[in-house]
Design a protein around this nucleic acid. Structure first.
Lengths: 165, 165
DNA sequence: TGTGAAAATTGTAACAT
DNA sequence: ATGTTACAATTTTCACA
């Protein structure tokens, strides 16, 4: 009987070998890749590959696989970054505002940051009017919001990510 | 499998009905959901569902499905936004720099923006030293980069996205 | 178009190395 | 811990309402 079995670990550190990295890289490119294709690319047997994938998921390394949609095809060709600066910083209220911002249609990502600003919103909207409406009707209406500043986004590119190599 | 139709469609506008939206919403949550489960959730037959998914992909609405990894589990618990301001803006050089920045390990997203800054980098690194090294060795070394400013990211949350409802 | 039942592919589990 | 085989589940294809 081999030794220890990893328990359902929290998302802390994990020891990854080359096979794991190959699997993660492949799934980052195409999350619907079949297990057989994955195995071939990683150079292991299919059963091994399936086992690794499940282990990576249970270890919290592989958190989700999501579809990515085209903002343009969905009628939201205009991207912007909205910097939000707050006046008060009561913990409860900040969290509440956070929730509201994330739920707004057109909001892709919300960064809660420290420094000059408090929130950075990456949004995709139909056009300038929609952007103005979004800001005026859903952001600056909140009493906590002291100031916003909007930057036009020319282009967004996903980095190669977290994996070494 | 032969008969490809005329063209791979452009990412322009698309007319989406409730079924499409249901499919997209489901795949945005779980991109590996089985076609059978999708069909049940959308309220259509499995074959219909598969057809819709393929159509959405060919229409450029569904651009990709990617695995999401845990930066923490991969040893990169520190997130930051690096604002990059350039001195010169020669088109060629800007593009070249863009390419370099996107390829850096730890760089999750690069926003090319207009306004006060030129690039916004969302990065995930192992710790403060790694952040400093990343900035000094890979960002500010470029002659074009006039100034950087770094904001600590407390938390990142994905918005509900692009779909109405 | 959308549906339902076939074949073909894929994922899963048990077993052997 | 990896590889192989057999079996179940799923996707895909095609004829039809």
């Amino acid at each position: 009987m081999a030794g220890e079995r990893p328990k359902k670990t929290q998302p802390h550190q994990a020891a990854l070998d080359g096979t794991d990295l190959a699997i993660l890289a492949a799934l980052t490119e195409d999350g619907r890749m079949t297990n057989a294709a994955l195995a071939a690319r990683a150079g292991v047997a299919e059963s091994t590959c399936a086992y690794r994938v499940r282990a990576l998921r249970e270890a919290g390394v592989l958190t989700a696989v999501r579809a990515h949609l085209s903002p343009e095809a969905l009628g939201r060709p205009l991207h912007a970054i909205i910097k939000v600066r707050l006046g008060s910083h009561s913990r409860e209220l900040v969290h509440h505002l956070y929730d509201r911002l994330v739920a707004l249609p057109g909001v892709l990502t919300v960064f809660h940051v420290g420094g000059d600003d408090d929130f950075l919103l990456h949004v995709a909207v139909a056009g300038p009017e929609a952007l103005r409406d979004l800001i005026l009707e859903h952001v600056t209406v909140h009493p906590m919001v002291r100031q916003t500043e909007t930057q036009l986004v020319f282009e967004v590119r996903e980095g190669r990510g977290l994996l070494p190599g």
